[in-house]
């Protein structure tokens, strides 16, 4: 119990962010037309690619002689970048199709 209270005290800003973002996420999606489900999912897919920032931080804090960690970290940065770049580009292509109609 004390651990939990301590955890909350130390991380209270983070916990605030979590709670607020949950509501923001729900609000933002609100009334989306079915037509846009796929681009929206794809766009959200690109945004969670922000995990690549974690992979970068991991690399920056790894000792240069820890080859296993460096190897895995490099793969993580690569995969995360793939998620970000691929995600945004494919979403852009989908939306390009919608725009052409005019």
């Amino acid at each position: 119990m004390n651990d939990l209270i301590e955890f909350f005290t130390i991380n209270k800003e983070m916990i605030f962010i979590v709670i607020l973002m949950i509501f923001v996420g729900v609000e933002v999606i609100g009334k989306v037309p079915a037509v846009l489900h796929t681009p929206l999912m794809s766009g959200a897919n690109a945004i969670h690619g922000v995990v690549v920032v974690g992979a970068i931080l991991l690399m920056l804090n790894t000792q240069p002689d820890n080859y296993l960690a460096l190897g895995l970290g490099t793969v993580a940065v690569f995969l995360g970048t793939l998620n970000v770049v691929g995600g945004f580009v494919v979403t852009d292509r989908m939306l390009e199709m919608f725009k052409k109609k005019k």
């Binding site: 962010i17 929206l40 969670h48 922000v50 931080l57």
Partner: peptide, 27 residues
């Protein structure tokens, strides 16, 4: 991604991750 943000105390990972987690669930 949000758990990663929690670990590093990195707000942008946290916001991005939770945002997608929440919006994705609703979607």
């Amino acid at each position: 991604a949000a758990f990663g943000g929690f670990l590093y105390g990195n707000q942008v990972m946290l916001t991005g991750g939770i945002l997608v987690g929440s919006a994705g669930t609703l979607l």
